[in-house]
Amino acid sequence: MRIFDPHIHMTSRTTDDYEAMYAAGVRAVVEPAFWLGQPRTSPESFYDYFDGLLGWEPYRAAQFGIQHFCTIALNPKEANDPRCLPVLDELDRYLAKDRVVAVGEIGYDSMTPEEDEALARQLQLAIEHELPALVHTPHRDKAAGTRRTLDVVRESGIAPELVVLDHLNELTVGMVLDSGCWAGFSIYPKTKMSEDRMVEILKEHGTGRVLVNSAADWGRSDPLKTRKTADAMLAAGFDDDAVDEVLWRNPVAFYGQSGRLELEEPKPDEEATFRGNSIRRGGA
């Protein structure tokens, strides 16, 4: 089974996770830029983070046979902090880079005017850079937030097939699929969405334009939720082809719109380094 996790924050995960993911079938991941669990207080912190998403993390992933791509954006939560806003002026530099396959995560957290501005501006950047957009939907007031997000996406003029709305549930999936956007689901141990509920959604809405991710990060989360969802699909009677569609071909089709996915499996190389630094211990 081959798996593409279209949303996972590997910077927060261990090498054990990479090993377990490879063993479970994960061969490619997309890591969206997001917040770190505590606020950043200057633009420079973002640039170092972006550099890590484009440098150290793909190097780490490659040592475990996994292709690592990323999405770049000023996240909705920190778009409310005036100290972080200058990041918007430098995004052009990062959105032009080879392993950046979308603008994201953008979207709403608390639906403030500042978030409106950041969302609209970054959707324009997606259009200018001919990139897809990964749009987070808010945890609070999700249905209203999703409706409002769809309005802003429509007003931006970006093609709906270039947009995924993420963290959906039973109440928001219908309007997103109706809009022509892609529907993203984050399968969590306790909150958001479980693999069994996901299977029910797939039965009701079908397997087209659906992305399933673990969204694993520094919080309680599970980087193997993609595989567990695949197993739950098989147990519920979906065949191997449907599993391959949802867990591999769909994310490849969505992020492939960037023209920047290169999916040959990296060969782990004990001697490889990034800027002269390695994941070996007792060495460099």
Partner: peptide, 10 residues
């Protein structure tokens, strides 16, 4: 140059 320079390899 800020968006063209990074795109060169591609």
């Amino acid at each position: 140059v800020r968006r063209l320079f990074p795109a060169v390899r591609r």
